[in-house]
Design a protein around this nucleic acid. Structure first.
Length: 423
RNA sequence: GGAGAGAUGGCUGAGUGGCCGAAAGCGAUCGCCUGCUAAGCGAUUGUACGCCCGUAAAAGGUGUACCGCGGGUUCAAAUCCCGCUCUCUCCGCCA
């Protein structure tokens, strides 16, 4: 959510920023709603002020046993008027709120103008594509041949886009996520949290999934709870409606969670394999920072995600999302894309974003400056570190051997009781 | 699932219709005192939104709202009434 005051004063700037994102926003409607709100507010507050004053007089008169009936009659009218204006104000604020909730964040000046993912500039890459003496297979073939991934069984138990992992497949998934958590907590300074996997409506609204993206969520029947699409939601909401001390910042949290996504609108895309599931595991990093450090923190956060792939020995590249590809709440996003030899493509395995104060304003997460005592919004950032299922895909495809077996990267072997190859 | 108790500021806790944005204590900040620390004394101590004045930004003044959330009664609600949520205790069930 953008700052209403900022929006009011910078309409043209915001308009051009939104145009670059391919969004057209009806700012005339905003302007008229906004001035209507202020007019109504002023009117209602004036009446309230009168009522407060006269009510005091009535109290005094009554104490002196004097007659207050004419004042009471007048205030009765005033109260009725207040009620009526209040209702109009409520409706206007609701509309204004609904409007502002649908305006995306303003992108950082370093974000390049583009029309789609093909315009995302590559900012760096690491490692090299492995060379195979045979035609590398896709992970679902490797996994099924080794009997560690069973897509048919996942479909039987639940439905499409669910998978059963068997034996060393299940163990590999667990090894990968433990390795990630240990690295981020042990070397990168993150504090681990384990959160609820379903959250209420306020939490979903705080991080921006609602009201705009309800169709992407799974909702619990009979309750106003939702399955989380990412640990970002519960972790960011830890500090919802709080004022933090400046010296607490920056706060680093890392959380494992399963992620549940309805994947509405992605029919026919990545229908085979682990790439696009209704349920997948992810290790998520979340930061709360002072505004002046958030872009440095974004670089560090992205480096923390990349470090996982370096240690696993998987070639990747990092792209900076262009205006058209940038998420709703994000001011700047780096995607880390791992090389997947079976697919002969780079696939997103992490997405690291700086939301600046966009989420913090929605979720009301603030901090008090030590110097001035002033309250300001924090900046929130988050990034996958990494998507666990897709990391397993990358391992299977990059470490596959001619005989169909898969080597286990050295760093994971301690997490697999020393197993160095799945056969 | 059944029975009961509760929700007030950073914290503890008073407040059953007007003098309550809210006593008192603790904590915090500033000042005095002091060789230093402690003690003591004094002052300050929420957030949001609007308006005025003014500014590079601020400061300042003023109004309104906020005592779990939503509604109602009343000239007037932290206080009375209704609904909801959450917390705690006991019973049942359970990993």
């Amino acid at each position: 959510m953008l700052d209403i005051k900022y929006l009011r004063q910078n309409i043209e700037l915001v308009r051009s920023k939104m145009a670059a994102r391919g969004q057209s926003i009806d700012f005339d409607r905003f302007t008229s709603l906004e001035s209507e709100r202020r007019d109504l507010l002023m009117a209602v507050e004036t009446l309230r002020s009168e009522r407060n004053n006269v009510s005091k007089e009535i109290g005094d008169l009554k104490k002196k046993k004097a007659d207050a009936s004419s004042l009471i009659a007048r205030m009765s009218d005033v109260s009725a008027k207040i009620k009526e204006l209040d209702e109009r104000l409520r409706i206007t604020e609701e509309e204004l709120n609904a409007f502002i909730m649908t305006v995306p964040n303003i992108q950082h000046e370093s974000v390049v103008m583009g029309h789609g993912s093909e315009d995302n500039p590559v900012v760096r890459s690491w490692g090299e594509k492995p060379v195979f003496t045979f035609k590398p297979k896709e992970h679902f073939d490797i996994g099924e041949n080794l009997n560690i991934l069973d897509f048919a069984c996942g479909a039987k138990i639940t439905g499409a886009r669910f998978t059963l992992y068997r034996g060393l497949g299940a163990a590999l998934e667990r090894a990968v996520l433990n390795f990630m958590l240990d690295l981020h907590t042990g070397e990168h300074g993150y504090t681990e949290v384990l959160t609820p996997f379903m959250v209420n409506r306020e939490s979903m609204t705080g991080t921006g999934q609602l009201p705009k993206f309800a169709e992407d969520l799974f909702k619990i029947e009979g309750m106003d709870y939702f399955l989380i699409p990412t640990a970002e939601v519960p972790v960011t909401n830890i500090y919802r409606d709080e004022i933090l001390e400046e010296k607490m910042l920056p706060l680093y949290h890392v959380a494992y969670s399963p992620c549940f996504r309805a994947e509405a609108g992605s029919y026919g895309k990545d229908t085979r394999g682990l790439i696009r599931q209704h349920q997948f595991n992810k290790v998520e990093m979340v930061k709360f920072t002072r505004p002046e450090t958030s872009y440095d923190e974004l670089e560090k956060l992205t480096a923390n995600a990349e470090e996982i792939l370096k240690r696993l020995g998987i070639h990747y590249r990092t792209v900076s999302l262009c205006t058209a590809d940038l998420g709703f709440s994000s001011a700047k996003t780096y995607d880390v894309e791992a090389w997947m030899p079976g697919q002969n493509a780079y696939r997103e395995i992490s997405s690291c974003s700086n939301f600046e104060d966009f989420q913090a304003r929605r979720a009301s997460i603030r901090f008090r400056r030590e110097e001035s005592g002033k309250v300001e919004f924090v900046h929130t950032l988050n990034g996958s570190g990494l998507a666990v299922g897709r990391t397993v895909v990358a391992i299977l495809e990059n470490y596959q051997q001619a005989d169909g077996s898969v080597l286990i990267p050295k760093v994971l072997q301690p997490y697999l009781r020393g197993v160095d190859r799945i056969t």
